[in-house]
């Protein structure tokens, strides 16, 4: 065998994983070839160096951060429960403001003694406002598919306010 072939077998030889025949060939070559014998020493050195590599201590602040992972993850609930997250987003503020104005507007009419009568003409306006509100909310980034649900419940509440509970 040539040196290049022997060289490839040396790490395997050190692991004692060669067949008996290969092992004999390698050993015979090592006796006559100083270069391959030096290579063998290098492989030994590498294994020794790596196995004696000191392990570093972990930084206590990192350890503390690792301990707190369950709390961190609990503090950021998954998107499925993230409705509250949405309302806390700065970009959601216009939508919230619109909703507040709409409700104020409604309460003004519904609390008015004649509110019940105004109610029917208001329905169209309410639907229009709801549409506007929906558009504003749709612009808010990252709002997942909750809107139909929210819209239905708002619409239901508004219907109750305007028409009285059904």
């Amino acid at each position: 065998m040539k040196c290049a072939q022997i060289n490839k077998l040396l790490p395997v030889y050190l692991e004692n994983e060669l067949s008996w025949q290969e092992k004999m060939e390698v050993e015979a070559h090592l006796k006559t070839c100083a270069r391959c014998a030096a290579d063998l020493d290098n492989f030994k050195k590498i294994s020794l160096l790596l196995s004696s590599m000191p392990q570093l201590e972990i930084n206590p602040s990192l350890q503390a951060r690792l301990y707190s992972i369950p709390t961190q993850i609990k503090l950021q609930p998954s998107r499925k429960l993230g409705l509250l997250d949405f309302f806390l987003k700065p970009s959601a503020q216009p939508a919230l403001a619109a909703a507040v104005i709409l409700l104020l507007f409604l309460s003004f009419f519904t609390l008015h003694p004649d509110g019940r009568y105004l109610g029917y003409s208001l329905k169209g306006k309410i639907n229009f406002s709801l549409g506007q509100l929906e558009k504003t909310i749709a612009k808010v980034e990252g709002f997942p598919g909750y809107w139909p649900l929210v819209r239905r419940s708002i619409a239901h509440s508004l219907k109750n306010i305007v028409q009285g509970p059904s």
């Binding site: 060289n7 490839k8 040396l10 790490p11 290579d39 290098n42 492989f43 050195k45 590498i46 294994s47």
Partner: peptide, 10 residues
Amino acid sequence: GKIQLARLLN
């Protein structure tokens, strides 16, 4: 990997 590291040593 070991062969590559050994080459570096050489």
